[in-house]
């Protein structure tokens, strides 16, 4: 079975963010990490590989040329090979443009199961998995908290619902997006780290994928960022001090908030 884990390179969640004049996030190589949500994507790919002997795992990423470092980090967790789609014409792509590229790359790689995170920690769009499925004309099982492949033909997932969970299934090849509760990502082992640079890593350009540069990138983006504002993290707190009646006031407050 060919499993592809689609990941994104995002700035570290703790890194200071800034925007260029075109309202694009300024990405610095030293802040780049694999999207934290995608650790679950990679882990799930590796677990499915362990369950299905003879499977291969490919890690796929669209990003700047320097994203090879991020792919090596992913390969340190496991997987057989990585593919980076990188092209200067891709800068400024929106979610739809990204999905168009991933769909073409997935088609070129060939797959039975393509895994995605539920969103990326930079833009939180969460659109890419479904848009990619649409371009491919294949089913997407979204927000999976459990994934079972029966034989090589069907994917079955559980998706948390308000009460209990929903079950859904689709014939392979299919796309599946996963949520954090699906697994506990492993630490890369020391051997995994040492092996990561020896694994094959291919780079595809738009020409390799047969895509017209005008269909992707900033020019084709329909989504546009207009402004940004820093979220104020100051919270309003109430402080009750001293021994006189402070406990009563805390209890009254908790009752008012329906905590007690």
């Amino acid at each position: 079975m060919n499993i592809v884990a689609c990941i994104k390179e995002t700035p570290s969640t703790t890194a200071e963010k800034s925007f260029g004049p075109d309202m694009r996030l300024e990405r610095r190589k030293e802040d780049a990490i694999p999207n934290p949500f995608d650790e679950y994507t990679i882990e799930e790919a590796l677990r499915q590989q362990e369950k299905h002997a003879g499977s291969t795992v490919t890690i796929l990423c669209m990003g700047p040329a320097t994203a090879t470092d991020t792919l090596r980090k992913a390969l340190a967790m496991g997987g057989d090979r990585a593919v980076l789609v990188s092209d200067s014409a891709l800068a400024g792509s929106d979610a739809i443009g990204t999905a168009r590229v991933l769909a073409a790359a997935l088609q070129k790689i060939g797959f039975d199961l393509a895994l995605f995170g539920s969103a990326a920690a930079d833009a939180y769009g969460g659109v890419v998995p479904s848009a990619t499925a649409e371009f491919l004309g294949l089913p997407l099982l979204s927000y999976a908290s459990k994934l079972d492949l029966s034989g090589d033909s069907t994917a079955r997932i559980q998706r948390a619902a308000e009460i209990g969970y929903n079950e859904a299934e689709a014939p392979l090849p299919a796309l599946v997006s996963v949520v954090k509760s699906i697994n506990e990502p492993r630490y890369p082992s020391m051997k995994g780290i040492m092996a990561s640079k020896k694994k094959p890593l291919d780079t595809f350009s738009l020409a390799d994928l047969g895509l017209d540069p005008s269909s992707v990138g900033g020019a084709a983006a329909r989504e546009r960022a207009i402004s940004s504002e820093k979220v104020s993290t100051q919270r309003k707190g109430e402080m009750y001090q001293g021994n006189e009646g402070a406990a009563d006031r805390v209890v009254a407050f908790l009752i008012e908030q329906k905590v007690l």
Binding site: Y187, S189, M190, K191, G192, I193, M194
Partner: peptide
């Protein structure tokens, strides 16, 4: 041990991770 932290600076043929001595010290 499972993560290979107890055999960092030894070659893989002897069960180690094959890292260099500085890597071991940094770890």
């Amino acid at each position: 041990a499972d993560l290979g932290l107890l055999g960092l600076p030894f070659p893989e043929e002897f069960g180690g991770a094959g890292a260099d001595f500085l890597s071991y010290c940094i770890a």
